[in-house]
Amino acid sequence: MAALNIKKGSTSHSAYDLRDFHSDVESSHTLAVLVDNEAGVLARVIGLFSGRGYNIDSLTVAEVDHKGHRSRITIVTRGTMAVIDQIKAQLGRIVPVHEVHDLTLEGQSVERELALFKVAAIGEKRVESLRLADIFRANVVDSTLESFVFEITGTPEKIDAFAELMRPLGLIDVARTGVAALSRGV
């Protein structure tokens, strides 16, 4: 561990961590929370966020280890560094929570979201929607004479961009999964 260097009388620095806690700049963080897949665990996590007034921008959850009954909850949240640290500490003390990772801080990570878009269009707009889908590598998973359902995966930003372009072409319904994320490398 690096030498701890505390300036006498200073209150603005933690000895362990020289990030500026007093900053009120908010940033987005993606947290991966590994939990026992037991009844009520998601309610505990969500209850923590609502009870303490934290934000949830996106939340996904599924069992990732069927034998061990472990689920992975991916939460995208926003806050100042002090709030993010509180969120992680509060998550960490929920009894069925095993690990909390801040993917935004712990090196590089990949984030993906899946979305389904229903576009109702005929004529030139219908053709244009297919062209755009091709550019975005979206697949057609359902088709009628006057509509398509596209499936697209990517970062939330890419999906936002696709939605922007599809809207004037007849986008009538969207379903998004929320973010799934993993750290890069091993």
């Binding site: 701890l4 505390i6 200073s10 209150t11 603005s12 620095h13 933690s14 000895a15 362990y16 806690f21 007093h22 002090a82 640290d85 509180q86 500490a89 509060q90 960490g92 003390r93």
Partner: peptide, 15 residues
């Protein structure tokens, strides 16, 4: 003993 008590209200220099 509770990490969530640290820096919850007052930022400290040495947790």
């Amino acid at each position: 003993i509770d990490a969530s008590s640290i820096n919850k209200v007052v930022t400290v220099n040495l947790p």
